[in-house]
Amino acid sequence: MNLKKHWWKALAIVLLVYVHTVGLLAEVPRLNILNETIRALYFHVPMWFGMVLLYAVSVYYAILCLRKPGQGYDIWSVNFAHTGTLLGILGIATGMLWANYTWGSPWHGDPKQNGAAIALLVYLAYFVLRGSLESEEQKERLSAVYNLFAFAAMIPLIFIIPRLTESVHPGSGGNPGFNAYDLDSRMRLVFYPAVIGWFLVGLWLVNIRVRVQQLNKSNS
């Protein structure tokens, strides 16, 4: 992957500075219960979107691993999964912060929260699996297979089951997502840049990690 250019790193910084200033200062819709916590939409939700995007790229590289083994796609796949998990942990932390003020306790036992926690466990198991495989060739092949499996397990846990059950999370269990709010067009102006910003920062992290690991490998 050619990520040598710098413009997208600058774009990531600009977007996130914009998101943090406008997201914290601009006017937001006044809603009961939510009040100012609606600003979590600019931080919590884009992190989850960024996580799913990074995991999707990781799956793309896993498929490449299976189709053309031994071409060095494995290192990309695992680092995308790593960074996706980082954003997932940040997303769950910001979600707990939000839940503390909106639902009254950081861990509310909501299906969405539980599903998210299990999805993170699925990916942590992926790293355990990698740790216990010995040969590089086996590591590439088996972890790519489990990566596909993990992605297929994550989607219903986060997106399907919470919609079917009595979830109080916005966008699940019959609750409106942010599409239903009146002032959504103004919020979208911050929300979509935030998604792109977090994804680009994730990409940057992956890029640095892969380069460090490649250098370590060629040194040893």
Binding site: V122, A125, V128, L129, S132, L133, F149
Partner: peptide, 22 residues
């Protein structure tokens, strides 16, 4: 998958628990 790993019984438990939850 777990049969290929070095400590297969631990890996089996770790991998299967999240997969079975749904």
């Amino acid at each position: 998958i777990a049969a290929k790993a070095s400590n297969s019984h631990v890996v089996m438990a770790v991998l299967s628990f999240p997969a079975l939850i749904a």
